[in-house]
Design a protein around this nucleic acid. Structure first.
Lengths: 168, 168
DNA sequence: AATATCTTTCAATATATTTTGAAAGTTCCG
DNA sequence: CGGAACTTTCAAAATATATTGAAAGATATT
């Protein structure tokens, strides 16, 4: 396979993976494009390469910057801004995990926690089942939460170093 | 909080969590409804409770059965079918992980793997950067893959038992 | 085999999300 | 200041996804 073809394939795949995960396609594709670009790209270049509108490019680049997956970069003597993606994939993974946890998992954990003290008759089967299920879920989500925190805050090699033996 | 209110809140939250994760809202809500029901429910009851159409209910119940999150159950002397959710939340988590991995992660891993042997000039910066990034990603996704496999296949307590110390 | 009960299908419709692009906003520089 | 170069905004349009419900398909019952 040639480089150009490989880049194209990567951009398309990353885009469709993104949309399955609730990240919009353009955002994921811009991210992919910047990942495969050795040089910083301008908004104009992103638009041309992916055939998207100015507004769309702008909005999604901004979002990528919010997620800290992309940063602005200036070229000397150039008025316009250029963009570069974080290329360390382990860091990328942690940044994505962090954002999604914040937006999706944390509110859920909060709600589950609130559902832990429901008033009711302790002899009632419905009540007992509900409480057991929520308790179970609360325990599980809290473990998951701690684990994610650990991963998000871990340095570059911690995760691999710790688990590598278990995975072989 | 009263039981009925808690159930309602759980159903709504589970539904919106689901849609953020690419699972449609009705499917997640039916799942939640069955999770909080001590008794098996008929399609009719699901429709009434969640105010969805027959077609919608049917389609999503079927999908939940595909995922093995729900199973059919018959009541003696009853013609129609009833449905029950798997209530063990650790098992639920593993079943969901399994399905999503199959549908989303596995194809991605395959593609990344293919992108590992691209032809090109070894002195070219673009080429070198691309290869380094893909290599990095390939290593990472393979570790992740192995980890998920381990979790999916683990029995009820393996995961918690193994990691509990690390999470405290 | 006719009827009643329940399930499945799918084209039409509704809803939600994404994208566009022109206009407004900002910043830089002579 | 005035205008060129670039960025941001946002209402309208396009696209994608989910839902409806009537009709067709099963399956049990008399």
């Amino acid at each position: 396979m040639q480089l150009a073809e490989a880049k194209e394939k990567f951009i398309q795949s990353w885009g469709s993976l993104g949309s399955q995960w609730g990240i919009n396609k353009t955002m994921a594709q811009i991210h992919a494009l910047l990942l495969v670009s050795a040089e910083p790209l301008s908004a104009e270049e992103v638009m041309e390469e992916l055939l998207v509108s100015r507004g769309n490019a702008n909005m999604n680049i901004r979002e990528l910057i919010n997620w800290q997956l992309v940063r602005r970069e200036n070229k000397p003597g150039e008025r316009r801004e250029f963009f570069v993606a974080e290329k360390d994939m382990w860091k990328v993974f942690r940044l994505i995990l962090k954002e999604r946890k914040k937006r999706e998992i944390d509110p859920m954990i909060q709600i589950i926690h609130e559902l832990n003290d429901v008033k009711g008759d302790k002899k009632n089967a419905e009540y007992k089942e509900f409480n057991a299920m929520i308790k179970d879920l609360d325990t599980l989500t809290n473990k998951g939460d701690k684990m994610m925190e650990l991963v998000i805050k871990s340095d570059e090699n911690w995760f691999l170093n710790t688990f590598i033996k278990l995975m072989r």
